[in-house]
Amino acid sequence: MPPVRTTVAAQLENLGLAVAFVEEAAERAGLGHQQTFGLLVAVEEAFVNICHYAYQERPGDVVISCDVDDSALVVELEDSGPPFNPLELPEPDTTAGLMEREIGGLGIHFIRNLTDAVSYRREEGKNRVRMILQRVGVSTA
C-alpha cells in the first residue's frame, strides 16, 4: 500500500478530519479496536499540541502521513513551527491525589503509552513526531 498524506490547517476544529484520516489508515492496516483507540488518542494529543503551540505567531498547517508495511503502521505529524520536542516534556505524576493532581501533562504520557514507539526529529525546518503501531497477528498474505 502506498503511503497516504493529508494537510489540514492547525486548528482545533480540524481534529475530526485528522482523526478520521488516521482511523481509515488504521482500518487498512487491520489494527484492532483497542489499538486503534489508543492510536487515535495519541494522534489527538500530538495534533492538539501543534494547534496550541506551533503557530503562535502566524497560522500554519499540520501534515499527517500514514504508511503501512508488513509489520507496522507508521503515522507522522509534521509542523513548520519553531523547534519543539514534545518528548522532552516532563512526565506527569500519575499517583498524585485529586487535589494535588495537575491539570495537564497527560497528553505526552498517552502518546508514549498508547503507541509501540514514538520519536521526534527536527529536519528541513520542520518538527516531525512519528508514532509506530505494530500490526499484531495481521495476515499479510
Binding site: 483497542q34 489508543g38 492538539v48 485529586l98
Partner: peptide, 30 residues
C-alpha cells in the same frame, strides 16, 4: 482523551472543594 480527563479533573476538584464528589460508573474496555 487527555482533554476529556482534564475536564473531569477540573470538575472533580470543584466539587470536592464544595464537599461533594464526582464518581463514575460503567467504564468499558478502552
Amino acid at each position: 482523551s487527555s482533554a476529556g480527563l482534564r475536564a473531569l479533573l477540573a470538575v472533580g476538584k470543584l466539587l470536592k472543594a464544595k464537599g461533594g464528589e464526582i464518581c463514575f460508573a460503567n467504564l468499558h474496555g478502552t
